[in-house]
Simulated assay, not measured.
Amino acid sequence: LGVADGAFAAGLAARAATPGTAHVVPAGESPAFLSEWSVAALGDPELADLLTRLGLRTMGAFAALPAPSVLGRFGPSGARAYRLALGLDEHPPALEEPPPELTETAELDPPATQVETAAFVAKGLADRLLERLEVRGMACTRVTIEAETEHGERLARCWRHDGALTPEALAARVRWQLEGWLTGRENSDEDIDVTAGLTLLRLAPDEIVPLDGRQLGFWGGDQAAADRAGRALARVQGMLGHFGELVTPVLQGGRTPAERVRWVPWGDPREPLRPVDAVRAPGANVAEMPPWPGALPDPAPARVFDLPLAAEFLDRDGQPVVVSGRGDPSAPPARLRCAELPGGGGDIAAWVGPWAHDLRWWDRKTRARCARWEVVVSPGVACLVAVTGGHATVEAIYD
């Protein structure tokens, strides 16, 4: 957890915090806090490389330059990074405090015990809420759904959306939430048990932004087709549920192919859980470091299996290849057997590795030690093989 004057400085403060604690940068001291950070943390690899070659390795050295000179030498992208190095956000947030009169409320008499009954009422609330926001030139990106039961139980949940909520998207999220409450699916993490029907529903906008409208493509592109596809995907998600199978990939940081992709439900903010670039926090050595040390080299495999495929990773004598505690293999790999590979596997024509990983060594429950090889099996099938506890698996295939 990190706290600072701006979002960028707060993000770096969170990186500098020790596990389980918060790093708080006092008000007005964000520039001093950022001054020791590497320019690689600015998120622009090309600019960071140029600044490093010019001898400007830290944000403090970069921020010491005159603003006109930065704009003239590095252009708009450099000016944006310059503002971040000074502790200023790229642009102030355009959020507005939702007026309290925009809250939409409906009383249910008799109390609703069925999802369809409550969802029908909620659909009308969603339509009216977004219509009133549109009249004011605003759009909603986060909404709070509240409900009360006949026995006085109070329920509330805040939903966030990637971009402005449409009537269909808002109605779908309200329906999912009502289904969770009335069927008891989402009450496991709450101290409330719904013991009666719902007597009140309320939708309150929690975060609103200016309604910017839609910018059509100038050099082509069918925006209408994209909108139709979006509506179709939203409809499919409505049938599957919010945590169904309709997800999109988001690139994030990690050392293995599986860690580098986060699957996000359709319509949710597409944000990584881990930063793509790992940057050393300020300390004795603030020089740039490569992203995610120990990560497997490019190229990334085309197919990554959710459940690795059982395999036999053998040496020339037919014995399993194992790895010592120091990461040394017992023998060069010579053959890979796996029932799911073409021909059940075969002789290894080429290989590189191993890369020894000791993941989450500080947590006994989730710690994982393994070694990985990239191998090419005749006739030309490239695989990512992992050996853990003497057992081999195929984690991915390079198609």
Rank of each mutant, 00 (worst) to 15 (best):
L251Y: 06
T113Y: 06
A234C: 11
D317I: 01
G283V: 07
D277L: 10
P308W: 04
G318Y: 09
V25T: 12
V276W: 11
G327L: 01
T183S: 09
P332W: 09
L246Y: 03
P290Y: 10
S35Q: 11
V70E: 03
K123F: 08
W361F: 15
D317Y: 01
M138G: 00
G344V: 09
L309T: 04
P98Q: 10
V387F: 02
H161F: 15
E46P: 12
R364N: 08
A310V: 15
P210V: 05
G244N: 05
W362M: 05
G389H: 07
Q177G: 01
R128L: 14
Q223V: 15
T52V: 14
E150G: 10
A224W: 14
G380I: 00
P333H: 04
L233C: 02
P282V: 10
F313Y: 15
E312A: 09
C383W: 05
T103N: 02
P291V: 09
L129D: 01
G343M: 03
A94E: 11
G380L: 11
W373R: 00
V375Q: 02
A287P: 07
T117Y: 03
A64P: 10
W176F: 07
P282G: 08
W219F: 13
D49H: 13
D222Q: 06
V323Q: 01
G238Y: 06
E104W: 03
F8S: 01
D268V: 13
R260F: 10
A14F: 03
L108H: 08
T393S: 14
R202Y: 03
L341T: 01
P257M: 13
R185S: 05
W373H: 00
A119G: 08
C370V: 03
P19Q: 12
M138Y: 04
E374C: 12
L130W: 02
A226Q: 13
L273F: 14
A172I: 02
T393I: 06
A300V: 08
L165A: 00
P167S: 06
P379Y: 03
A169N: 02
V25P: 04
D222W: 00
P92G: 02
G43Q: 03
A48M: 07
S38I: 04
S77H: 00
L129A: 05
G6N: 05
W181L: 07
P379C: 04
V279C: 07
A122D: 01
W351G: 01
T105K: 07
V377R: 03
L102T: 04
R303F: 08
L216F: 14
D298P: 00
P333R: 06
A350K: 14
G318I: 02
T105R: 02
G327P: 03
N285H: 12
G327N: 07
L95Y: 14
L233V: 14
D191H: 13
R83G: 07
W373L: 00
A61T: 12
H23Y: 08
G294H: 07
D363Y: 06
A204G: 05
V352N: 08
P342C: 12
D268Y: 14
R316H: 14
T393P: 04
G253K: 03
A64W: 13
R262D: 06
A81K: 00
E146L: 03
W361G: 06
L165G: 05
L65A: 13
W362A: 02
L309S: 07
P167F: 04
D347K: 12
A334P: 00
E150D: 12
W263D: 13
R175E: 08
W361Q: 10
Y398R: 05
